[in-house]
Design a protein around this nucleic acid. Structure first.
Lengths: 246, 246
DNA sequence: TGGGTTTCTGACTATCAGGCGAAAACCTCG
DNA sequence: CGAGGTTTTCGCCTGATAGTCAGAAACCCA
């Protein structure tokens, strides 16, 4: 700092905001990509995004650019992911890009422009720039956060059965999860609560499933999904003392 | 993307790399800051950092700028934290800053320039720009990562006793931790291993403490501190199946 | 009414975290 | 050289948690 402005040169490079928008569709986790019509990387698929404007926060910039693809109101979650600065990441010249992670709940199916489409994250097409690598970063982030925060909230519809929630977690995590535990764990942690209503059984019959919803936490405004294990303290521990466990 | 270069304007702002360098000193967690001699924020304390140069990665930039303060070889860990883009964060004009989190182990005491000093994170002086807020972000990151990764490694000397390690965790986490559990938990998780040697007891006597070291994981090159719970699987679970638990 | 299907619930087990106290190993002082 | 003080280590106990499994419950269709 200081040297930024006192030094003779103040190098500046176009800064862009990108978004990895994820949604579970047909039991698979998908990423929203658009197909580039022009060089470089013509025909390859890229993340939505664009330049950071004059009086814009990066967060506001992502939200604005996403409007060209989907309604921002559909986004259940949006958080900063990481900033890529490799000088060679764009063959036309240097750019710095800050990527965001966006989540869309399953129950909405936003209309997309013609050049934009959903792609399963485990079977991506040819990607432009370093965007494939950015998607992988987003996956790592999502998967780790699913197990110790409430981001699952942002992937789920307002009301759901345990079976549906299980499908979401299986799709997002990439490995199998037992429904029994998922329900009990989330219930005990206090993040899930029954609505009292039931979902109609499928065409094959079966016991009607109880509907649940996530408990809306009136928590920190900055990160509403931050907290996970509210009261579940250990044996005789009081206050903040003990081992680790986060 | 695409629109970044096809649009008539390509706004660009000076990009800088900042570092929140943390170290436990005298049982308290400290941050490295330097005192600004000039306006704006003359007399206030700022994070080390500076402009991103032409052919530099952000990571390389932080490392280079830190050289002005400490030897980079002292850094036990360096990871990207977040990018700040508030248009008003610098009164002189718009800048975008990417902050990194750096950790220095306790056993080194690097010589600092005259304008640079360590400050306890829970008692910071007046800070410049949004740097105080960035330090708080770094704290949140460090504290959460301490409980589910091996970053503690980067704060500790190569060999240490359980008591010393406890001091580190207490200082970094900000709350008390029992030595018994810390040792057992870390041992069971397989991140700690005894060296076989002992540390000489203090002047007051007492049983000599066994020396431990962190098990160096030959893991992912990208994030050597990523993994935490290697083998400790549950009852009869095989492969990747089960509930959550990360 | 009976077979098929899906969901829900309870029981059982292994693991884990936290706390406590006794034992071990070392010091210093009389 | 033994007694008292100090620090660490180790074992045991308790409560909570994750995972599995099987049976009961509730619904459909024929």
């Amino acid at each position: 700092m200081g040297s930024v402005w006192s030094s003779p040169e103040r190098p500046a490079y176009p800064h862009q905001a990108l978004a990895v928008v994820l949604q579970v569709r047909a039991r698979r986790l998908h990423a929203m990509l658009w197909e580039r019509p022009n060089e470089p990387f013509a025909g390859a698929w890229a993340l939505p995004g664009g330049p950071l404007l004059a009086d814009e926060t990066l967060g506001a910039s992502v939200a604005r650019q996403l409007t060209a693809k989907v309604e921002v109101s559909h986004l259940g979650h949006l958080e900063q992911l990481e900033t890529r600065s490799d000088p060679g990441r764009d063959p036309r010249g240097r750019t710095v890009a800050t990527a965001y992670l966006g989540l869309i709940p399953t129950h909405v199916d936003p209309a997309l422009p013609d050049d934009t489409a959903w792609h399963p994250v485990d079977d991506l097409p040819t990607t432009a720039f370093d965007h494939g690598s950015i998607v992988r970063s987003a996956l790592v982030r999502l998967r780790s956060k699913l197990s110790y925060t409430n981001v699952g909230f942002a992937l789920a519809p307002p009301e759901f059965t345990v079976a549906e929630l299980r499908e979401l977690y299986v799709a997002a995590l990439g490995y199998d999860v037992t429904a029994t535990n998922l329900q009990r764990v989330l219930l005990r942690r206090g993040v899930l609560e029954p609505t009292g209503e039931q979902a109609p059984p499928g065409r094959a019959g079966g016991r009607p499933a109880a509907l649940y919803r996530f408990v809306t936490p009136e928590l920190s405004v900055t990160d509403p999904f931050a907290v996970f294990r509210p009261p579940s303290r250990r044996p005789g521990s009081e206050g903040r003392r003990g081992g680790l466990e986060g």
